[in-house]
């Protein structure tokens, strides 16, 4: 499944791209004033999961490395934040940073080892690491409370910042924090793909042997991509734990390794906004499906099969190919 190429960034066109992304984020900012409460809450969730997918896309879409173990990074952030908050009463800001740090370290370790392999072996190695992580959350049940999970108290979610009292239980605040995180992830992706490093990552995806012969240490470049992708995923996990006051084993399960792949494929791999669109569509598709059937997994399965069969470039990948070649 080779993803489409990125076009050479050009002056003028590049500004159009920036405008589009700012526009999408502004639209999300405005949406909170018109959306009913239920959908605002859903959208908060979607934006956090979309951040996860944006991080995943950096590795899968742009670098061409298909990880089947990103639940490990999401869970590293989730537990990295929730465990100190639950056991030591850390407030949200240090807990959030702890989650990011945990994700960074896990990504660095797993990346350093897994990147010794390529192709199918890389997929299975990442799958195995994530499975070991999931089983560990069950095995150390006295710390993580396994499937039942940790419920964070309101106390750790209320804190003073610059003299203001911040309460993460407030839905409006949650919405805007999730949006801020998503905006940061999109900005990072845009910067990466428009800088020289982005060109190197795409080159590795297209032809690693040739990239090596151009003087690039592809192992190091791929490690940068894994760490960046893993850390963004962990940030999404940490924010999820703190904003929704819960961390459970199910977030470490194989499903949460598959979802970001699904969202990215659906929206369009190697497009900046594709994972966001994919997450949004999939979330509401399952939401709708659960209205008349409990069988939401079948929707996930069918969409996956249909995507690889008929639509391998995803929505925005196809849009770029047909109409908007400047789309980053």
């Amino acid at each position: 499944m080779s993803a489409p190429a990125i076009a050479a960034p050009r002056k003028g066109l590049a500004d159009k791209a920036i405008l589009l992304h700012v526009g999408v984020l502004a639209l999300l900012l405005a949406a909170q004033f018109v959306l009913p409460e239920y959908h605002a809450l859903s959208l908060t969730r979607v934006m956090l999961l979309a951040t996860f997918a944006v991080g995943y896309n950096l590795l899968f879409g742009y670098t061409g490395l298909l990880s089947l173990g990103h639940a490990l990074f999401f869970a590293a952030g989730l537990y990295g934040a929730a465990l100190p908050a639950y056991h030591f009463g850390w407030t949200a800001p240090p807990a959030f940073l702890a989650g990011i740090a945990a994700g960074f370290l896990v990504a660095l370790t797993v990346g350093a080892v897994a990147l010794r392999t390529t192709g199918v072996a890389f997929m299975i190695v990442t799958l195995m690491f994530a499975q070991a992580g999931y089983l560990a959350t069950l095995y150390f049940g006295n710390v993580t409370r396994g499937d039942e999970g940790l419920v964070l108290t309101d106390a750790v979610r209320r804190f003073e910042l610059l003299g203001l009292t911040v309460d993460l239980a407030d839905p409006g605040l949650r919405y805007n924090l999730a949006l801020a995180l998503l905006a940061a992830a999109i900005a990072i992706t845009l910067v990466v793909v428009r800088r020289p490093i982005g060109r190197v990552l795409v080159a590795i995806r297209e032809n690693e042997a040739r990239t090596l012969m151009l003087g690039y240490d592809s192992y190091r470049a791929k490690l940068v991509a894994v760490v960046l992708s893993g850390t963004i995923s962990a940030a999404a996990g940490a924010a999820y734990a703190l904003l929704f006051a819960y961390a459970g084993s199910s977030f470490a399960s194989i499903h949460y390794s598959i979802y970001p792949l699904l969202w990215t494929l659906l929206g369009g791999a190697a497009t900046v906004l594709g994972p966001v669109l994919g997450t949004l569509i999939m979330f509401y598709l399952i939401d709708l499906a659960s209205g008349f059937t409990t069988a939401h997994l079948v929707v996930v399965g069918l969409v996956l099969v249909a995507l690889v069969l008929f639509f391998p470039k995803g929505i925005l990948g196809t849009v770029r190919e047909r109409w908007l070649p400047w789309l980053p």
Binding site: M1, L261, L297, V300, G301, L304, V305, V308, L309
Partner: peptide
């Protein structure tokens, strides 16, 4: 990817 879909 397709067999993951099949799994679900």
């Amino acid at each position: 990817v397709a067999t993951i879909g099949l799994l679900f």
